[in-house]
């Protein structure tokens, strides 16, 4: 009994310590962000490396989701005589929710894991220690530029998702269902708000980007210096980041859309 109690207490304490360490790490990375942007080449390189990896994935996912949404909703809305509202409903769903959430999830699986395993491997092969020994702060030189690149990449990917998803929906609505172009785009323009839908979606995406990239660089940086340690860091990145995305989505939605 005492042993179990002890174990639980120890787990709890290390869990709490890890949480505290994550926050400290977060502030350290944030404090170093301005300096990261003073060497923009390093950041641009990372936007490209991380973003580019996820572009095909986000593009394809967005396209198929646009297709499916249009197929599903065209029929359902038709039953209520509201088929003309297909455009706005798809646009709002995609811009507000599906775009930010699915983009962030896909990014966690592709860019986030790449980030965690890359940094974890640098830890395991003593590259981070070597850097410290060369009087170079690895958080400044390695972590901050990657974090900066990651948080820039996610909202851009989100915009890509939005555009491709709407294009997919347009293909179904116009080419397959022969809906009127004017009705599709006109109604969309009339009822989609720039602030409420587009901007809020991008803000959400930015918040998710912060969370996913923080989890990824933290897990990589604190990975155990073994093959198993790097593997665990990668897996934990996906699990923790995905849960964080859903939880943050709820909070952000509650703040942004009270009765809108």
């Amino acid at each position: 009994m005492a042993l179990i109690q002890q174990q639980v207490l120890r787990r709890g304490r290390t869990g709490l310590a890890a949480f505290g360490a994550a926050w400290l790490f977060f502030f350290r990375v944030l404090a170093l962000l301005p300096r990261a942007f003073m060497r923009p080449l390093l950041v641009v390189e990372q936007v490209y490396a991380l973003g580019n990896r996820t572009v095909p994935l986000v593009g394809l996912a967005g396209f198929f989701i646009g297709l499916v949404l249009a197929l599903q909703l065209y029929g359902v809305l038709g039953r209520f005589g509201a088929a003309s509202m297909l455009g706005p409903i798809i646009a709002i769903t995609v811009l507000r929710e599906l775009g930010p959430v699915i983009t962030a999830l896909l990014y966690a699986g592709r860019g986030g894991t790449a980030l965690a395993s890359e940094i974890g491997l640098m830890r395991a092969t003593e590259q981070l220690s070597a850097m410290e020994m060369m009087a170079v702060d690895p958080v400044r030189r390695i972590i901050a530029p990657r974090f900066a690149g990651g948080i820039i990449a996610v909202p851009i990917l989100n915009l890509l998702f939005d555009v491709v998803a709407l294009f997919g929906a347009w293909m179904i609505a116009i080419l397959a269902m022969h809906m009127d172009q004017g009705v599709f785009w006109g109604n969309m323009q009339a009822s989609v708000g720039f602030m409420d839908d587009l901007v809020n979606g991008i803000i959400k995406s930015f918040i998710f980007g912060l969370a996913v990239n923080l989890v990824a660089v933290f897990e990589g940086f604190t990975a155990q210096s073994t093959a198993g340690g790097v593997a665990r860091a990668t897996t934990r990145t996906v699990v923790i980041a995905s849960l964080a995305i859903f939880a943050l989505d709820f909070v952000a939605t509650a703040f942004m859309y009270q009765g809108v």
Partner: peptide, 15 residues
């Protein structure tokens, strides 16, 4: 540390 050089066991080159 600028006054020190360290050779790690496996070199620890930046890959």
């Amino acid at each position: 540390r600028m006054r020190m050089g360290v050779l790690f066991q496996n070199g620890a080159l930046l890959t």
